[in-house]
Design a protein around this nucleic acid. Structure first.
Lengths: 198, 198
DNA sequence: GGTGCTGGCTAATGCTGATAGCTAAAAGCT
DNA sequence: AGCTTTTAGCTATCAGCATTAGCCAGCACC
């Protein structure tokens, strides 16, 4: 019997794919093993536990989301960056709901946990989207938290099938981006005099 | 040995309390039984399965959240309603994270599922908050979805300990409410001429 | 005060995560 | 090539939790 040639990364990737297909809660070691053409105990040669595996899926999710956002924001600022980043985030979460759920559920479990930098990269992208509006620095953190809340809430609600009413979700999303853009521009404009005075 | 006098509602309440304390994922039939001073199999005389129990917790959550929002919005409109409703929602979710998680995870499982009306009551409260701004009716659904996204995203992120940076979450929340209020008023003002014209 | 329902119990099953120990495939060395 | 060492995958097994079966005592109602 030839070897399957698994690696921790391969196991994580299979688990992530499976999580996207059947949901994070439905994930089991048996299904991951079956997907890889291997018996369940073999997985433990590459991954210490199921908890660790889902943690790895969460890290993978944040790394991929960070890459996606970075690519989407290349060379853009202001409204363009907001629209592109938000759309990229929504599309990625819609395509990878299981991964995203794992990423949200993951908590940092040590000083050299790769989750930390991955999350920071995502936050940095959102920060860049906000920073393009040149707000009062003291307000940036609030705007960042709002942006995060909106994007996460929208993506999560959509992925969970929460938008039942018969109205285009695409249209709603565009409306939300528009709303945020106008609002952020208004905040920036209101700050400008104060900054000029100081 | 005297009887414990359990009911489906009592079991659900115990499960909800436990979910708030240890998290929805940590919930187990054994812990619920222990909390009630009973052995595990006894629970099945009142609840058909664990899946059904968590579903009941989700329904309870939506009913309670609906009541909370209805109470908070009594006699308020516009900015006051927005602020009161948002604060009430945030406080309730922070106090009952396990219930809320169950409510979000619950999917309607039949035509006469009490989850449906409970969710609709919550949506109706959010709808009332939005309706107070007198938007173009075609935009209300988008505003409602945005409001839902923001509130859900903010509460979820806070409950998950996602706001790590050393800045007041209270302050951020107040800022967000302010942002939404100004934005919604701007949208209403932009619509007003169009409505007058028609 | 008997009778039927019903809520709680103990015992047992099945599934899933996880460990122990074996074997054979790969990798390295001479 | 042939020998040794490492290690990936296997079978067998255990442990924990959800769930079911079947028994028995408390309580309601006559």
């Amino acid at each position: 019997m030839p070897r399957a040639g698994l690696t921790p990364a391969a196991v994580t990737a299979a688990a992530a794919d499976l999580a996207d297909e059947i949901g994070l809660t439905g994930l089991s070691m048996g299904l991951v093993a079956e997907r890889l053409g291997v018996k369940t105990p073999s997985l433990y040669k590459h991954v210490p536990s199921q908890a660790d595996l889902t943690h790895r899926v969460g890290v993978l999710a944040m790394v991929e989301l960070g890459d996606t956002l970075r690519d989407a924001l290349q060379g853009l600022a202001g409204r363009d960056a907001l629209a592109a980043g938000a759309q990229a985030m929504r599309a990625w979460v819609t395509a990878h709901p299981g991964r995203y759920a794992a990423g949200n559920a993951a908590r940092s479990s040590g000083p050299d946990d790769p989750l930390q930098p991955a999350v920071e990269r995502v936050l940095a992208s959102w920060g860049a989207m906000v920073h393009g509006y040149r707000l009062d620095p003291r307000q940036e953190i609030h705007a960042l938290r709002m942006l995060r809340s909106v994007l996460d809430g929208f993506a999560t609600s959509e992925a969970a099938g929460g938008f039942q009413i018969d109205a285009s979700v695409d249209e709603s999303f565009a409306w939300v981006i528009d709303f945020l853009d106008h609002g952020l521009r208004a905040v920036a404009a209101a700050d400008a005099p104060a900054l000029a005075r100081s």
